[in-house]
């Protein structure tokens, strides 16, 4: 009876866990091996005998790699600031009885249900140099009919133009998370701080913000991971161009693998991507583990 009882949880686990190990955990390890090989995607991957780390050596001499890295960093820095501040501001503003609150909330999180492909296409059209909404409005404002800013063709602008789309989609998500966090804030605490003579800003700074700190940790980690995952928008809007100026690691990797058939090289890129994200995954897991241990 006891032996039978011991086996029960494993019976529940066996199918999902095997599937998960084969499709997720196993491949994670296999990427490391692939990064040491030469592989065109058709024949078998061959270990590079002369110098197993050749893919990595080439990677660290590849300017596109550094452009991509820099672009991912830009993405991360924008993502952990702008949508977080916006989302928090909106959550605070909408967490009270104001007319049309439902409409406002729905408007801000509606971009979340659109696929990134759809977002990318609609914004590409808004950015269109001749017919797009943005240049059309700017032409009206400036009174210059010749104005034609290449939002997606100017090497200096393109990355920011794409990041704006990502921010447009992300702010509502952050708002939702903060709104949920605010539900847990005891209104009596806010009244108490008011009684103690706190003004709006001080209540926010010294009462609300510290209470929301756990939400902020989650929001920041999720934002960083999302930035490292950035792919769809770049792929749809520019494919990393012009001249790789909007390349990000995931897109760089996809192009090396499926356009240039350098899959071993692409695997090396994914190992780097993994290494960077591992740091943040670890922070996140650590956060959860602390809670788990309190049980």
């Amino acid at each position: 009876m006891l032996a039978k009882k011991k086996i029960v949880p494993y019976l529940f686990l066996i199918i999902p866990l095997v599937l998960y190990l084969i499709w997720v955990i196993g491949p994670m390890g296999y990427t490391f091996y692939l990064s040491l090989t030469k592989w065109d995607g058709l024949s078998k991957p061959e270990l590079i005998q002369s110098n197993p780390f050749r893919n990595y050596e080439r990677l660290f001499r590849d300017p596109v790699f550094f452009t991509s890295l820099k672009n991912n960093l830009k993405w991360i820095l924008s993502f952990i600031t702008i949508p977080v501040v916006l989302g928090l501001g909106l959550a605070i503003a909408l967490n009270r009885s104001i007319p049309w609150a439902k409409f406002f909330k729905a408007s801000f999180y509606s971009p979340l249900v659109l696929s990134l492909v759809v977002c990318g296409l609609i914004w590409s059209w808004m950015y269109h140099p001749a017919g797009g909404l943005i240049n059309s409005v700017l032409r009206r404002i400036t009174g210059n009919p010749e104005l034609s800013i290449g939002w997606l063709s100017d090497e200096k602008l393109v990355m920011w133009s794409i990041i704006i789309v990502a921010i447009w989609r992300q702010a509502g998500y952050v708002m939702v998370l903060y709104l949920a966090g605010l539900q847990g804030v005891d209104p009596q605490l806010l009244d108490a701080s008011k009684v103690d003579g706190c003004n709006g800003w001080n209540t926010f700074r010294h009462v609300i913000l510290p209470l929301l700190a756990p939400v902020t940790v989650i929001v920041v980690v999720i934002s960083i991971i999302d930035s490292l995952r950035a792919f769809d928008l770049v792929s749809v809007m520019t494919r990393g161009g012009p001249f790789n100026s909007s390349s990000v690691l995931a897109n760089f990797m996809y192009i090396e693998a499926f356009n240039n058939y350098k899959m071993g090289y692409a695997a090396a890129i994914s190992v780097i991507l993994f290494a960077i994200s591992a740091v943040f995954i670890f922070i996140y897991l650590w956060n959860i583990m602390k809670d788990e241990m309190e049980y």
Binding site: G26, M28, L34, A250, A266, A267
Partner: peptide, 18 residues
């Protein structure tokens, strides 16, 4: 939990091969 947080592009090539 760890797998959930992974940038899934990391799995792209092995899953393609599998």
């Amino acid at each position: 939990v760890g797998g959930t947080m992974l940038p899934f592009q990391v799995l792209m090539l092995p899953v393609f091969r599998l």
